[in-house]
Structure formats: C-alpha cells, structure tokens
C-alpha cells in the first residue's frame, strides 16, 4: 500500500534560546492510504502540533513532509489552502459550524472556496448529508440540531470535496456515549469507502475502534504502530 502521509525528521520548535519549546522533535511517521489511525498521548505531547502539520495548517521548522507525494514544507499559504480544500477534510471537537448558515450551506462551504458551481454544490452537499444520515435536516440551522447531529453536519462538510484524508481533532470530545458510537460508525464507513482517517483522541474507547494507534510523548513518537487491542481504560494514565 502506498504512503499518503510521510513525516521525515519533522521538528517544530517555538521560540529560541532559553525559551525554546520543542513541540515536535525528529518525528518520523508514515501513514498509508486507507489507514484508520488514532493519535494519542498526554496533553503537551505534541499530538496537536503533529495534527496541524499533517493537516497543512502549519509548517514544520525542520524536516520534510510529503503529503500525497508532494513536499508540503515548500508550498505557500494559498497553495496549502487549496490542498486543504481539495484533499483534506477537517472535523473539530467544537464542530465549528457557521451559525447563520443552514446545514446544507455549511456543508457546501468548502465547495464555495473550491469554485464549484451552485447547482452541483447543492447536489453534492445534499448527498453528503444523506450519507451521514441527515438527509431530512438540510434547511436546519446548527442551533436547531443536537450535538451529534451538528458533528455529523461537520463530517458531511469534511467529506463533501471527496478528500484523501479525513483529519479529526477530538471529534467525540463534546459528545455523549450514544452519539460517539454513531459518529464512530460514520468514520468506520467512510474509511471502508477508501478515505484515510486520522484522529486525535483522548478516549481509549474511541481509539480502540481504529486500526492503529500512534503514541506521542514529549514531542516524539514513542510507538507508531500500537495495536488497539493493547489499549485499555488504564492506558491513558500510563
């Protein structure tokens, strides 16, 4: 299987001298196309920074990052924005839906920036909402939806441009157990459909549902191929 994400000696350093903070230090990581992987680690372990680099929201201080065989570290802001638009779908803990837009318009938003014509946008946004089981909620505003429904709208928005990578940052952090299961089922389905899924999570129960766990500590990858079977409820304490 070919590699979608390759981090080569990636470091992210903030500040300099005495105040230097190594958020990431010499990280080597490879994630294949079709992988379903969770990133775990204690707070401050660098998993969020890794996530930002992987999501092309941030550039590493050192090292090379190949995303879909392209060295992302060399690209300018607008090209990164275009890559995020076309190839990456984001799901956030706080959903980040725009309150003044309907579910349909929220889902269609990435296509607005992708320059896709209105009719096609509506069609594809409706399909994406259908896919996450909200085909009957197209015109609802986020305030008229439950937390689980809002997160599903956010997932529909993330997949509407048919990305290679679905990147989720604590996607179930604001959800209860039932809706967490619903959302994880959607991720599972999407992954089976061929989308690479990478999520940062604190919850062992959620990480257990992925195929592979990458463990971070102090800005370094401690274990890049931990099996979800080896994780229990006590693991997080470590």
């Amino acid at each position: 299987m070919s590699s979608l994400i390759t981090l080569q000696n990636i470091s992210k350093v903030y500040g300099s001298g005495n105040t230097e903070v190594k958020a990431l230090w010499d990280v080597n990581l490879s994630i294949n196309k079709g992988d379903y992987c969770s990133i775990m680690g204690p707070s401050g372990s660098g998993k969020s920074t890794a996530m930002n680099v992987i999501g092309c929201l941030d550039r590493p201080t050192h090292g090379h990052y190949f995303f879909d065989d392209q060295d992302v570290a060399l690209l300018n802001d607008d090209t990164l924005a275009a890559i995020r638009n076309r190839k990456i779908g984001f799901v956030f803990q706080q959903f980040h839906l725009l309150p003044q837009l309907s579910a349909l318009d929220n889902v269609a938003l990435p296509m607005v920036y992708g320059g896709i014509p209105t009719a096609e946008r509506r069609q594809r946004a409706a399909n994406a909402l259908q896919q996450v089981g909200l085909g009957n909620r197209l015109t609802n505003k986020p305030s008229q939806l439950s937390g689980g429904q809002q997160q599903r709208v956010a997932i529909a928005r993330a997949i509407v441009n048919r990305p290679l990578l679905l990147l989720a940052d604590e996607p179930t952090g604001a959800l209860d157990t039932t809706t967490t299961e619903e959302v994880m089922k959607i991720f599972d389905e999407l992954n089976r459909g061929g989308i690479t899924v990478v999520m940062v999570t604190h919850e062992p129960a959620v990480a257990k549902l992925t195929k592979r766990i990458v463990w971070f500590r102090d800005g370094e990858v401690v274990n890049a191929h931990m099996s979800p079977d080896n994780i229990g409820y006590g693991t997080l304490v470590e």
């Binding site: 999501g55 929201l57 802001d77 607008d78 924005a81 275009a82 995020r84 638009n85 076309r86 984001f90 956030f92 706080q94 980040h96 725009l98 938003l109 990435p110 920036y113 992708g114 928005r157 441009n161």
Partner: peptide, 16 residues
C-alpha cells in the same frame, strides 16, 4: 475569529 479560522481550514485563501 473562529469562523475565519474555520474558513481558512477548509480552504479559504487570504484573499478570499
């Protein structure tokens, strides 16, 4: 701010 961050994350350029 969050709206702007989101728009950028999903592909809005600075010019947009």
């Amino acid at each position: 701010t969050q709206e702007i961050g989101l728009r950028k994350a999903i592909g809005a350029s600075q010019q947009d």
